[in-house]
Design a protein around this nucleic acid. Structure first.
Length: 231
DNA sequence: ACCCAGGGTCATA
DNA sequence: TATGACCATGGG
């Protein structure tokens, strides 16, 4: 049985570091994490470009902008009315808690609970923000991760988010020679990026490829760099 | 025309 | 706790 960490090494060897998350600032990363909920990234880029064009990619500007205007700028990313509200909720919390510098001083658990207290930020969005904007060693569980690793026979796809997150964090950490913050951060960062970027075309949600990974025929094996020789 | 995308909330049982 | 409805644009 292949391990999660060997999947990581093979993906990394084949594709190289992904240098995630796309964005020029921590705040842009956080905004992107909210806008990309159940949405293709290409659409998010258009919405972010609109925000930049409106010079509104700042928490105060977002809070001060009218809901109808904000929603209009977010239109390309879908769910624009809901996301306008979610962005405002987030910015409200963000400024109320002193902005990035103050938040960065909090321990990871406290910061995570704070993010989860915002209506519109669930576990995956919170962990995206923790990992890529605050550089905390938290592993992100998304739909690709569930699909791919369950088809590799490593996890039960019906497990709760927390169960999977803790399982990945534990098993990946155990595979590291040195359990340093930097190592975990690097592995969590790159593995999630590799899964999202290269997990797209390999196992469709349904109905194709229903356990084809287990039969060693899925493109996941090719993408992961698994040849017949190293199975 | 259909499927799906870097989810989350809320009402209901 | 566990489903289902709902949110909505855009590319394949």
């Amino acid at each position: 049985m292949i391990s999660a960490y060997s999947c990581f090494r093979r993906l990394l060897r084949q594709h190289g570091p992904q240098d995630w998350w796309p964005g020029d600032s921590a705040f842009e990363i956080m905004v992107g994490a909210i806008l990309t909920q159940n949405t293709a990234w290409a659409n998010v880029e258009k919405a972010i470009a609109n925000l930049i064009g409106q010079r509104a990619l700042e928490p105060r500007k977002i809070l001060n902008s009218r809901a109808e205007h904000l929603a209009e700028w977010l239109r390309p990313s879908g769910y624009f009315n809901i996301k306008a509200r979610r962005l405002k909720n987030f910015c409200h919390w963000y400024l109320d808690n002193g902005g990035y510098t103050a938040l960065a001083r909090l321990d990871t658990t406290t910061l995570r609970d704070g993010l989860l207290s915002v209506n519109g930020i669930g576990p995956e969005t919170a962990d995206d923000i923790l990992l890529y904007a605050f550089e905390r060693p938290v592993f992100v569980i998304d739909a690709y991760t569930r699909r791919l690793f369950s088809r590799l026979g490593l996890i039960d796809p019906d497990s709760t988010y927390e169960t999977l997150r803790l399982w990945f964090e534990t098993t990946l950490t155990r595979s590291l020679a040195r359990n340093g913050n930097a190592q975990r951060l690097y592995v969590y960062n790159e593995l999630h990026a590799l899964i999202v970027i290269h997990g797209k075309d390999i196992c469709r949600p349904r109905p194709l490829c229903h356990d084809c990974c287990l039969r060693r025929q899925c493109a996941w094996y090719q993408i992961a760099g698994l040849s017949a020789a190293n199975r």
